[in-house]
């Protein structure tokens, strides 16, 4: 589907929980949804057989953001959701997309986001006893 059609459908699905969106060059689309509503969007993506590329984590200053990168041909969608640094709880999507488990583990150890209901919240790349969050911008 085309970018505008995608945004329309998303507005229908979420209503006011779609906070902002941006259509870039070459079919790249970024949307931001309110924390807690990203699972509905991901379930919808799963029905469309979207391909999960990776989950990035970004430090926005006073918020921590997770960007889920999906490929819904021909679009390249970045689904963003964020939570405050004081209480950075975001719910997992690893029951819908199993490969998300490892990406969420990396986000947890690198940025300090707490992914709720994660099946295996161990450290992935960093040593097991590492307590800092390397990718935060202090």
């Amino acid at each position: 589907m085309e970018a505008e059609e995608f945004i329309e459908k998303l507005k229908e699905l979420l209503g006011r929980n779609l906070l902002e969106y941006h259509i870039g060059r070459r079919n790249r689309v970024f949307v931001k949804v309110k924390n807690g509503y990203h699972r509905d969007v991901v379930s919808w993506f799963q029905e469309m057989q979207a391909h999960l590329s990776v989950i990035s984590s970004v430090d926005l200053g006073d918020e921590l953001e997770l960007v889920y990168h999906f490929e819904i041909r021909p679009l390249e969608v970045g689904l963003k959701t964020s939570a405050s640094k004081a209480k950075p709880h975001i719910e997992t999507i690893s029951d819908i997309y199993p490969s998300a488990a490892w990406y969420e583990r990396e986000a947890m150890e690198m940025m300090g986001i707490v992914v709720v209901n994660h099946p295996d919240p161990r450290h992935l790349f960093l040593p097991d006893d590492y307590t800092e969050f390397p990718l935060r911008r202090y």
């Binding site: 790249r28 590329s53 990035s56 390249e76 970045g78």
Partner: peptide, 29 residues
Amino acid sequence: ESVGRYEAPRGEVFHYVKSNGTFYPERVK
């Protein structure tokens, strides 16, 4: 911000770059 994808011999290589207007990137994933 944008996304760069490339078909490497092993599969899809994915780069997510976010810039804040300075000479240094804000985030490279």
